[in-house]
Write a protein that binds this DNA or RNA. Structure first.
Lengths: 198, 198
DNA sequence: GACATTTGAGTACACTCGTACATATACTTT
DNA sequence: AAAGTATATGTACGAGTGTACTCAAATGTC
């Protein structure tokens, strides 16, 4: 088969087993949850995935590529869920209810999602290629919210979701779910008059 | 001087030069900003601080202690600033103005504060001793806000600050400062009626 | 069945790392 | 001045790292 271009170096020969690649990403995600990006190594991931060490550099072009693939899949999956979740709302009221459920679930505590988000944000603050993952994620969140809210409100809601999730997760004492409802109510209430003077 | 207790092991003999300890923490903070916690090592910090490698284990009981000291000082410093900042407000209106300034400054971009916050949050999600730093930080933020707002509004404002700061910093396109004003206005507007049913 | 080529595995190398520990220096007290 | 002690440094060790590169196995082709 000489028709297959085997241009030297970066673009390696066709990799055959996508299941295996996926399994490595699964393992990588698990290792990150357990040990953080800091504690993630090819060897740990290989062991977790049950594949030989050599497979790491075979399926991925190094550590950066592995992490990028992992977080990319993670963010996409969250976005998919959120889009589906918001699409089930029929009016503004039920949309608020969906947002409420989302915050409650995300801040519930022992969820891997929170850990992975923070690890990703940390990478994103320093590295542009990871920042493009978060940017796209935020973009999709807003679009999902704009199904039911005006663009400004959607942005503010999105930020509110973020802040409440983080603070509820890192807080020492448990908070009433009702505070989430209050937050949503205040943000989504159209205030035609800007009461904040300058 | 036999009166000085030199109980074995963890509590080492009195360390003499607090300036040097402080200088190491300065260096550590700088290294974290540049390379992340992941890329922080005793050797890098020592080089940055201009001290010999041995000083690392002399002034700190290992890496964890160094990181903890660094983030502890960081969070305390931020809290001090924020307290002072909020204390200059005289009424609710000027308090809102202070919050606005705070968000604008924190999300301005090339600030180390953002990077360090994320690194700290990431550690806090996994390690309780770092979580106590963030918990205390949040606690002090709220108290500062409660000088001018009721407790619930203070909590929501605090979360809003967090969310807006993160999203504005990670966003690809610049946002109007006016959106911050709108957010603050909506959160701080007393809504006696909860418009969200259920 | 023999050959060619893709696909995968094992291993070795050249690092960097945290930390313990044996010295060295500076200071205090006699 | 001598002795003793607190303070600080240089260094060496064992462990763990990413990745390149050499083989082996499997697959497809004639």
């Amino acid at each position: 088969m000489s028709s297959r271009q085997s241009s030297a170096g970066s673009r390696l020969g066709r990799r055959n087993d996508p299941e295996r690649r996926e399994k490595i990403i699964d393992a990588c995600q698990k290792v990150i949850v357990e040990s953080g990006v800091t504690g993630t190594s090819h060897r740990k991931v290989a062991t977790q995935a049950g594949v030989p060490l050599g497979a790491m550099t075979y399926y991925f072009d190094g550590m950066q590529d592995l992490l990028h693939s992992t977080f990319s899949r993670f963010a996409t999956s969250i976005s998919d869920d959120f889009e589906r979740h918001m699409a089930t709302a029929t009016d503004k009221e039920s949309a608020c209810e969906r947002v409420f459920e989302r915050i409650l679930q995300a801040s519930s505590g022992d969820d891997d999602e929170l850990i992975l988000s923070h690890e990703l944000y940390t990478l994103a603050t320093r590295d542009a290629s990871f920042r493009s993952i978060t940017t796209q994620w935020m973009q999709r969140s807003r679009v999902a919210l704009e199904l039911h809210f005006d663009p400004l409100t959607a942005r503010l809601l999105d930020a509110m979701i973020e802040g409440l999730t983080i603070h509820r997760a890192l807080d020492s004492e448990a908070r009433e779910p009702s505070e989430i409802k209050t937050a949503i109510a205040r943000i989504t209430k159209d205030s035609r008059e800007g009461s904040l003077s300058t």
